[in-house]
Structures are given as structure tokens and as C-alpha cells.
Simulated scan of single mutants.
Amino acid sequence: MVESRLTGSVRVVGVGLLGTSIGLGLRERGVDVILADASPTHLRIAIDYGAGRQAAAGDEPQLIVVCVPPDVTARVVAAELEAYPHATVTDVASVKLAPLRELRASGADVSRYVGTHPMAGAERGGPLSGRADLFLGRPWVVAAHDGISYQRGSAIDDLILDLGATLVEMTPEEHDRSVALVSHVPQVVSSLMARRLIDAPHAAVNLAGQGIRDVTRIAASDPELWVQILGANAAAVAGILNLYRDDLTRLIETLEAPEAVGASRRLAEELAGGNAGVARIPGKHGLDRRYAQLVVMVDDTPGELARLLGEIGEADVNLEDLRLEHSPGAQIGFASIAVVPERLAHLIEWLSTRGWRIAG
């Protein structure tokens, strides 16, 4: 067991996906984790899952992590600050400016509070979705403010490092503008695209491939939670969507007159701009490195995917990414494999000689 940087117990309020994952990760380091939740059922599940213990009289946590929905974050943080006057308190809500403003307006002791936001999660929440490794290698923003000292904030830094995340410092304003671009607007775009499928002909939906699955994956997220998130960061999200609307208008005008002089060039420039934007997204371990792709046909029978992964390992090739797609009406799937470019030819030859069918 790796020793924790934290010296005292940690109280986690709210045992959904993030709260349970924090508890599981800290328990692996031997930290005394105290769990609390408004739902007795969720609390029992998280405790049975091994994420921590129930609160007891006399608990004096070093750190309190509030993991509740955005619309009640400030209220719960204020209550925890009052109930535990010696503890440092943080939260993991996906907006940072609104809770801080609400706490200041209420007169709460923000000298013991700083908001944070781990850039990790899943489409499904709840304690059963919790994972001890959820935060490994993921950015975790600390939205510091002038009212908290470095000494107070050090416990939060220790929490983030204990869970294997990468600490990123931002102001609350910088954070909210940033997540509007890379998280909140993508959720809106994904949901609107998925809505187009509601009345689509079955014949069209049956053609759905990896492209539409990629675009609409996060559209399966909890609508109630996203109403709160978008409402709390409405101005920043609306600003980006206005720019996006301008982009769409420009593209629509080009497509409505595809034979016009310069239309093909304008269309190519829009698409090339997308290439340039994707190239800026950090890859594995934070590297801006593009990977080579190959597609392998995999029979839809037990053990075939495991055999493929095993033989990739035997080829001494590191698998950078893997995506699966099934062919409608056929007992076959397509495994899209990402590897570093210099290993691509070797892997294709290796798999081909072992009978794998390379589709692309």
C-alpha cells in the first residue's frame, strides 16, 4: 500500500460516481474516509463497496470533499464549513464561480474553502459506477482565490496527487470559460445531434456507424444534472454557442450554393480547421501525438477479442486506443486500433501472418 500524503481523515459528502471514486482511491492508500449522503441507500451501497465508513460522533476530518449537484453545492459547503470549523473544504462541481460568489454573499468562511473540478466522469453516475482509478492521469483543476492560504490549500493538493490526477491551477473565471468550450458546449451539441435521431427513419438509424456513435456518446448523460450545469455557466456557454451559430450559418450558406465560385475552397477550409483543432487536443499522457489506425475484423464469438489483444501484446506493440463497432446483421465486429506510426507496418504484418483480416 502506497502511503497517503494526507495526514488526517477525509469526509466525502455525496457518494455518487465522483464521491465513491474518491473514497475508493483514498482507501487504497489507507486514508480514513468518512461518507455522508442524503440517500441512505446510496450511503449503504458506497460503504458496502468499500469506499469508506459511516460518520461517527467526534469525527474531526482534515479535509471535506463535497460531491453534490451544482444547485446545492454552495449550501452544502457552507454547512460543512460551519459544522467542522477546523477542516478545509472543497467541492468537485463542474462550475466554480457561482458557488464561490454564493458563499461570499452568505458570509461563509471562504478562508477554508477552495473549489476544484476533476475532469473525469462517465455517462452513468451513482455509487455502483465508482472506480478507484477514475482520476488517474486526468486533469484536476484547483480554482484558487485570494482568500485562502497556501497552507490551507495544501491538503487539497495532497488529495489530488494521492488520486493520481494532474493538478491544474486556474481562477474560477478561467475554469468556467474553459469548461464551457471543452465540456459544456460539446454536451449541448451532442444532445442536439442525438435528438435528430428521434424521428429518423429506421433505415437511416440502422446505418449508424462509429461516427454518429462518437458524436452522440455523451448525449446519454443525466438531463437533470446538465440543466443545473448549463444554468450555472449559462453566459459562457451562450457566448460559445453564438460563435458556433455563426460557423453553422457560414457553412450552410456555402452548402446551399455548392457550385458558386470559391464554395469548394471555403468548405475545405472549414473542414481543415476541424483537423487543426483536433490536433490540439492532448493525447495519451498529455502528448499532442497523432496515432496510426488500423481496422481488424473480429468474429463475434467468445474469446476472439481477447485473442486479438493478446497477439498485439505478443507483437511488442503498445495499444494506444481501441474502439469497437459491430456490423448490423452480421456476426462480425471491427476493432479500430491506434498505435504509434512507426509500429504500424510491423503490427499489420504480425497480425496478417496469424490469420487476422485487416479491413483498413
Rank of each mutant, 00 (worst) to 15 (best):
152 R>G: 13
280 R>P: 04
136 L>V: 15
133 D>A: 09
275 N>H: 04
315 A>V: 13
39 S>I: 02
65 V>K: 11
178 S>G: 12
80 E>Q: 12
189 V>S: 03
48 D>W: 01
106 S>W: 07
315 A>P: 07
174 E>C: 02
259 E>Y: 09
74 A>P: 13
300 D>L: 13
285 H>C: 14
138 R>C: 11
255 L>I: 00
273 G>D: 09
214 D>R: 12
248 L>T: 02
13 V>M: 03
251 L>W: 05
60 E>T: 09
154 S>F: 12
348 I>R: 08
180 A>P: 03
323 R>A: 13
28 E>A: 04
61 P>A: 07
209 G>S: 10
10 V>S: 02
7 T>I: 04
196 R>Y: 04
123 E>F: 06
195 R>L: 14
78 A>I: 08
279 A>F: 01
295 V>P: 12
181 L>K: 03
101 R>I: 12
320 E>V: 12
297 M>K: 14
33 V>Y: 14
18 L>D: 01
183 S>I: 01
74 A>K: 03
120 A>H: 05
262 G>K: 05
173 E>G: 15
86 H>S: 15
12 V>A: 12
94 S>G: 11
83 A>P: 08
331 Q>G: 07
253 E>F: 06
245 R>L: 00
333 G>A: 13
201 P>D: 05
131 R>L: 04
162 D>M: 15
208 A>F: 07
69 P>I: 06
28 E>N: 05
304 E>G: 06
251 L>F: 13
166 T>R: 15
218 I>C: 04
129 S>H: 07
224 E>C: 03
104 R>A: 08
93 A>P: 04
306 A>K: 08
40 P>T: 02
291 Y>I: 08
71 D>H: 10
156 I>R: 06
61 P>K: 00
298 V>I: 15
45 I>Q: 05
271 L>S: 09
232 A>E: 12
53 R>T: 11
329 G>F: 10
285 H>W: 09
280 R>T: 13
224 E>H: 01
205 V>H: 02
13 V>Y: 01
74 A>R: 04
14 G>W: 00
45 I>R: 13
259 E>C: 11
